[in-house]
Nucleic acid binder design. Structure first.
Lengths: 189, 189
DNA sequence: CCTCACATTAACTGATCGGTCAATATTTTT
DNA sequence: AAAAATATTGACCGATCAGTTAATGTGAGG
């Protein structure tokens, strides 16, 4: 598979960017840390931005795969899965190396509305909200779209505060808010 | 006042950093945009980080002053003021030049736990939470500290999604969550 | 064994990075 | 007004930035 080298490069670059930031990480550092020379990197990716976009695609796949699977494992019904998201978040916050959300950081560093990195970062959040919306619809809530948007706000708020405070507590606090929301949320029929 | 020049430099640097990011903005750009030569800047600030810290101090004062005053104007009771925070946020999101929270972006670019910029960014969030806590106590809620932390999560989540989506809607969505929280929040005696 | 296509490399480009310096204005003190 | 202290400047420092080039190494097909 000719993609193996490329994938490994992406995964190693992901770690370096996640730990050190995008603008703060030069391509020479990426080359040294991944063990791939700069020229070879530029054979796979036209620009640094292209590499970052590939890294974000990988992160999007990894994170959604992990989160959705964890929500399934921790909750049996769709409603329980929605709540279980915050337990999964807490696991993430407690895991070694938690450094906040890569997409929030990417859109903070590339804040130009037209920037592909900015658009792709928000696309990740929309994919998360889509999943929440499907679960909310399955659970029989009357306005799944609106419920999903509110859950996304809770999730991002918890991540930001957990990252800034270096404390996993926001996961449980957001979970309590989520319970309050679901308890008074209108259902179909 | 010998501080006028320095203050004006800080305010102009604030705009440039807020628009373009911290690592992405060089000191030469700061010099050109503020009309102050680099050598003069370094007479006032030992390093770029020191300038950034001064900028963040200014932003902290400006933002808290604006937000708290706006909450007072829009709400007569402490409880109304807590809710009014989300109306103030909506005004901010709709104001021209909204580019997200400067402290979230600063802590995203300087994520090292020991970094003074990171610590000062979180200190701003703690000061906001302190104010929410005072209001929650005045309003007679049983656990003001916990309530304040949950409001902070709502606020940061709304800001992050509003900035990424370029849409002010999260302010109103977070406000609805805040209403649900207060409606079922236990009060003293 | 030879060749040809491709992968990989160290060395280099001009530009910009954070920060400094020697020289020149400008202000303050006498 | 002369002298001392302070502000301000453009030019410069080595390091690093994103990206390129010319040369070398490597493996498959004949």
């Amino acid at each position: 598979m000719s993609h193996n080298k490329r994938d490994e490069l992406i995964r190693n670059a992901l770690k370096v960017f996640y730990r050190n930031g995008f603008n703060a990480t030069g391509m020479d550092k990426i080359a040294k840390e991944t063990g791939v020379s700069k020229t070879s990197i530029y054979k796979h990716f036209r620009t640094k931005d292209d590499l970052i976009l590939a890294v974000l695609r990988q992160r999007d796949a990894d994170f959604r795969n992990w989160l959705f699977r964890r929500m399934e494992d921790l909750g049996s019904t769709p409603e329980e899965q929605l709540i279980a998201m915050f337990d999964a978040l807490e696991e993430w916050f407690n895991a070694g190396g938690f450094q906040g959300c890569m997409f929030i950081k990417a859109s903070a560093e590339f804040q130009n509305k037209d920037d592909a990195i900015n658009r792709q970062s928000y696309a990740h959040k929309q994919l998360l909200a889509d999943h929440f919306k499907r679960l909310a619809a399955s659970a029989g809530f009357r306005d799944p779209h609106d419920l999903a948007r509110r859950f996304l706000i809770l999730k991002e708020g918890a991540i930001v505060i957990a990252a800034m405070s270096h404390d996993p507590a926001p996961a449980a606090e957001a979970k309590r808010i989520a319970h309050q929301i679901l308890d008074s949320e209108p259902r179909t029929s």
